[in-house]
Write a protein that binds this DNA or RNA. Sequence first.
DNA 1: GCGAATCTTAAACAAACGTTTAATCAAGGT
DNA 2: ACCTTGATTAAACGTTTGTTTAAGATTCGC
Lengths: 215, 215
Amino acid sequence: MGKKVNRKGQQGDLPSRERIIAAAVHLFARQGYGGTGLRELAAAAGVNLAMINYFFGSKKALLKEILDGFLEGYLAVARQELAGDEPLTLRLERFIRRAVDYFDANPDALLVTITELPRDDPEIIEYKAAWGRQMMAIIDREVCMPLADQGGRRLPPRLVGPMLTSMMASRFLFAPLMEHLGPDEQTLSTGEYGHLVSTLFLHGIAGTGSRPEEE
Amino acid sequence: MGKKVNRKGQQGDLPSRERIIAAAVHLFARQGYGGTGLRELAAAAGVNLAMINYFFGSKKALLKEILDGFLEGYLAVARQELAGDEPLTLRLERFIRRAVDYFDANPDALLVTITELPRDDPEIIEYKAAWGRQMMAIIDREVCMPLADQGGRRLPPRLVGPMLTSMMASRFLFAPLMEHLGPDEQTLSTGEYGHLVSTLFLHGIAGTGSRPEEE
DNA sequence: GCGAATCTTAAACAAACGTTTAATCAAGGT
DNA sequence: ACCTTGATTAAACGTTTGTTTAAGATTCGC
């Protein structure tokens, strides 16, 4: 028999580079970026320690790649669902549903991104600022301005953007804590949650009386 | 001349223990808990390295004290403003205004708490869970149940609590990033922000047409 | 089969980490 | 003056940190 069944003998049959990213997202979300050592990460990925710096150059660059991947996907959803000629309400509903699905598919990456976003690291802060400017431009053009045009108040995008993102992310940001509160009846599906965020953002808590399918 | 003008020659004339906490909140918010070394922290507080372990026993215990102080204050606001016989709308408006003021007065502590909340550290996770249970109990009794009684849908407190907190915290969570986007016209005061969160939560984005003083 | 990338490894590097120890300083009580 | 108590100090403890190096495997084009 050969030494290994397949070329990559480690877990999950993914190439080393992506196993490192997957393990990093998992560990960074649970222990924080600063609280996770490269040796622990290498062991979790089933990879030699030196491979991390071989593929990414530095620990910081690995974090940047994780943030990059997640934010790029989030920005793509915003571009795709927020633009168009349809009424604002429809576009917002679509965007929120898609964004919540995206968060639900990448909860660890969302957690890493949110918890590392406010850090003022000179090596990645300008990258985060560049992303923020793009996001604010979309929110301003596709949400804030149409809202003002139809008689509403002119809200600053730097307020609406964070608010919208925080509302959609709240379930996933608090999920690790909530899991330690004991069993919970009454858990909503991802679809129900997205619909609820949508109605809450559009009509407030008073508008959440009806279930998704009844509307 | 004496060696020192006053007994504590260091900055800010606060006792050493509180200077450590103040410096820790400041540094943890900007570099993360894991990314801040005790030597750097001691230097920032103008204190000898050994004093940190002398007062708190360990780095983890220092973080716990920070979380404890902030969450205790937040819970106190919730207890004080959310309970009572007044209509739900009024109680929510009062709570949101007070909580936003509290966040505004302790933005760094809020940031540390939010970014460290999802971490699954066995030494402090049970403490966080105990706090979460108390908060969920208040939200359920004073918000979710009254809401269901007056014809609304029965929303899980584990959904409403995180949502409400995230909405109020969004401005402060994203503030460090927004400051790097260049100058911003159209910044709201804390009072205006609190009012806006309040109307958004109660009536949705459509209800934010009027300014606070016109209402 | 041979050279050339590409990937993987073990070992070492200096630096920083959290924590502990023992000695010194300053006050207060008696 | 003396003892006690709390605050503060410098120094060292053993680990762990992120990164680098140089050698060894593996794969692929030709």
